[in-house]
Design a protein around this nucleic acid. Structure first.
Lengths: 352, 352
DNA sequence: ATGAAAGCGCTAACAT
DNA sequence: ATGTTAGCGCTTTCAT
């Protein structure tokens, strides 16, 4: 037999028993220290912590899971109602992770809150903390009240991970979500490949007041600056996610500039955009690049109105958030980075 | 507080103890039956199996892991050497899954074999079976000798999953790999979006004798038939993965047809293709769509020679294969389908 | 052929 | 403040 190489790594993990022996205490005491439970003299506590660090201790998750199996740790999830298609996909990712962690001592508690009222989000956090959750996954729009309560939860020993939309300037352990800037850049790159004859571009968003919307626009514009493509952004339309406003403004822009060759629907009402294009069908094709994969977008791809859509792997966001929280709580492993970006992918009709 | 819905599912799993009680035997006997160990009267065996099925028994992985922790189950991995970039990514996926399964009672054993000699693959299988592996991940080119030995392993109770390249007509439990046909279709869809003025297309592959290569070509051509795009495949070039052959043939084709507007590098020597294009630079741009993300492709994207590349998530292939094998062995869960396709994604320069 | 029991690493309840 | 011990569900060894 030829160059068939072998590799076998035996990892003998350290146990609390070993730590206990080295420290000259019982395993109960070690357990107390390692899980920040009260009732240990500070001096002993430090000693044990030092030994644990030295021995590179990491808990055995199987053993932990088994011990927890009668009374699993509760993981709280706060997010908008299921009937939003984007969040449904996130939820599928969460469920997939939960399935893998099924026997590993965890239980989920979903709390669906309206994204508009911070008070609901606050109430949800408090309810979960009171219920004794081991950690929280949180996805509600930023707000001072929310920030305050996230920090309060953390102070009470309940780690929080934000996902999909971040709540910055808090002590959440990390954020799992999309790379908005990158998606803006990719949109520009795609646009430059399909828009050849009519280089004037329209960008449509909800509002420049939202950081998320601005970031995509910045990504798009920065790409134009960096590249030598001759595309030109005519106008950034704010449609406030309303059909009428969006339709009217796009109509207006298109009638004023019949030579617009592309529209980047960064956010906002896709249906309105598609209708506007239908109403203004001219001699040349108007190319459309947008984000996410809502039903209207799928429809647009099928009709050939939308060329590309850039998706942000919502499934992956759900999956990674739960797993990251699990690793943090059960293995004491902090995420590598404060920002965990989900993959940014391009989809066309043939991808479906 | 408003419409905040709750959901909490408590899953009380059945244990071998319960089965033992219901069957009026000891847990040891149940364990023997459930793991197909010898030493149980057929009558008792059937009874226990029936009860287990009725109670919808599934083993608790944490408990199983803990019991195995002193002597973890060995998972064998047979694949081409690490220094192939595609397989390195697959390996990263395998390692990521292994990391998650770290405390769950498994250990990996890699065997790197040359993809060209079936005998090496056979020897590897036999070596692993002799070593007492619990299951095998296998990725070596199809061959009668290989097929025979895969079946032999299965007969000896060692489940096999093929990945990346399948070995058909065997009793492997499933195949994890790319959807070649789909990637061919997507390539055609992309081509139609960027090739506008010069609709003649060249397809370059290694050889039509390989099913994998044919399948992509078929996907591409079928898409053309189904759509009303006016693209036309001029020629399918077989370059046998050799630089010289590929370069010469493409050069020949391009000089004969200066109006070729696109090349689909389905497989084969990308570097040769890029050089041919440089040597034949004409008035119009020749658009290139290819597969995978080898270093040359990345280079091509940066130079603007390649428009799109379609990737098949090798990382995901590695990850999913190991997890699927684990679920099969430790949870007794068969994959939903015989074919598990990794995601097919489009990448552009801005994706990198 | 089958039963009994020890042990895997950790938690939690009880004892000191 | 700290030690002791009984599980958690499964595997495995030793008895019967």
């Amino acid at each position: 037999m030829c160059p068939s190489t072998k590799s076998e790594v035996i990892i003998m993990n350290t146990t609390i028993r070993q730590i206990a022996e080295q420290a000259g205490v019982s395993r109960g005491t070690v357990d107390r220290v390692l899980n920040d439970r009260p009732g240990v003299k500070p001096l002993v506590r430090d000693k044990i912590k030092k030994i644990a660090a030295q021995l590179n201790y990491a808990p055995n998750v199987a053993a932990k899971a088994l011990a927890y199996s009668k009374k699993p740790a509760l993981f709280g999830i706060i997010m908008p109602p299921e009937d939003i298609s984007f969040f449904e996909e996130i939820r599928e990712g969460i469920q997939a992770a939960a399935e893998e962690l099924k026997d590993l001592g965890i239980r989920l508690q979903y709390l669906y809150v309206n994204n508009k009222e911070p008070e609901e989000g606050v109430a949800a956090i408090q309810e979960l903390v009171a219920a004794g959750v081991a950690g929280i996954m949180f996805s509600v729009m930023d707000d001072a009240l929310i920030r305050e309560n996230i920090n309060k939860a953390v102070d009470q020993g309940v780690p929080v991970i934000t996902f999909n939309s971040d709540v910055e300037n808090t002590r959440r352990i990390c954020f799992v979500g999309q790379d908005l800037y990158k998606s803006g850049r990719m949109a520009a790159g795609l646009m430059s490949r399909v828009v050849t004859t009519h280089p004037k571009i329209l960008i449509v968003i909800g509002s420049m007041r939202f950081q998320a919307h601005r970031t995509r626009v910045n990504g798009f514009k920065d790409w134009l600056t960096d590249s030598d493509a001759n595309l030109e952004v005519m106008q950034v339309i704010e449609g406030y996610d309303r059909y009428d406003d969006t339709l009217m403004q796009i109509n207006h822009a298109l009638s004023l500039n019949p030579d617009i060759g592309g529209i980047y629907m960064a956010t906002g009402h896709v249906g309105a955009c598609m209708d506007a294009i239908k109403q203004n069908a001219g001699e040349h094709k108007i190319h459309v690049v947008c984000n996410d994969l809502m039903p209207e977008v799928e429809q647009g791809l099928r009709e050939g109105i939308i060329d590309f859509t850039i998706v942000q792997s919502p499934y992956q966001q759900g999956y990674r958030t739960l797993r990251t929280l699990y690793e943090y709580i059960f293995k004491g492993k902090s995420p590598e980075s404060e920002y965990i970006f989900s993959d940014t992918h391009i989809k066309i009709l043939e991808s479906l």
